[in-house]
Design a protein around this nucleic acid. Sequence first.
DNA 1: AACGGCAGCAACCGCATCACC
DNA 2: GGGTGATGCGGTTGCTGCCGT
Length: 272
Amino acid sequence: MELHDDARRSDSPPSEEDDLRKGPWTVEEDLLLMNYIAVHREGRWNSVARCSGLKRTGKSCRLRWLNYLRPDVRHGNITPEEQLLIFELHSRWGNRWSKIAQHLPGRTDNEIKNYWRTKVQKHAKQLQCDVNSKQFKDITRYMLMPRLMERIRAASVHQHERIAISGTHELVQEKSSAFGSSDAESFDMQDPSAAASDCFAVSTQGSDHNMTGDWFEKSQFSTWWLETLPSPESYHDVLGLVGFDQSGWGQSLFGMDDDMWFVFTTLGRRIS
DNA sequence: AACGGCAGCAACCGCATCACC
DNA sequence: GGGTGATGCGGTTGCTGCCGT
């Protein structure tokens, strides 16, 4: 895109800087960069930009490679496992996106940052509280995260059952009805088990992680998390929800993640 | 069909830090 | 120790596509 072409046009003779392109990358540019790195590997990005023939800054090349072209970059929906990790790590480290991204194989800091800003902050706004407020942190810690844990566990169990019943790989294609249908675009989890296993199984060249439900089940993170959680009975104490009917705290309420947020929003209004 | 509003996301920008001379 | 260029990081911008009117 030639966004700044007009601005850059002047009477002065064109310099090398004037030739620099900005905006979205074209397929040709992507190929040029990929081919160059395939032959020469990553190096100094300014020389990559110069020598590859791209009319881009080194910075732009680096960003394009790291966030999009790198072979181990994973695109697509953030899985419940990843959501859980993001919530937890963000509560520890705040907006240290690159640090958080290091714990999510194949995800980039940019992607996580965008997820946080577009999804999480949006819902915090619906809850009428700041994303960094204690109220929102309590809601995520005592309500959202346990629910995500439950979903991951359920997905893991469900996957095992399906494997036991029907054997091997064709089940990847199946659509599960166990979780109900969903058009919840904010999480896009029509079939959490398939999505989770798919995402994590495919992922991560150059990483030892294999973040399937199994991984989660066996991980220390899972154990640690369970230990740090209050018992479900104490949710209402933590959140001040006297008389909160926990009988409705079941799968039926949370068939869709947007439902989950809807309930949080409703609860949030009751709390505030 | 045309338009406007909005959400999502790729890309840019500015600053901080690092590495090298 | 200071200067300079390269890289990393977080915040912000603006393009694109979707959806409702």
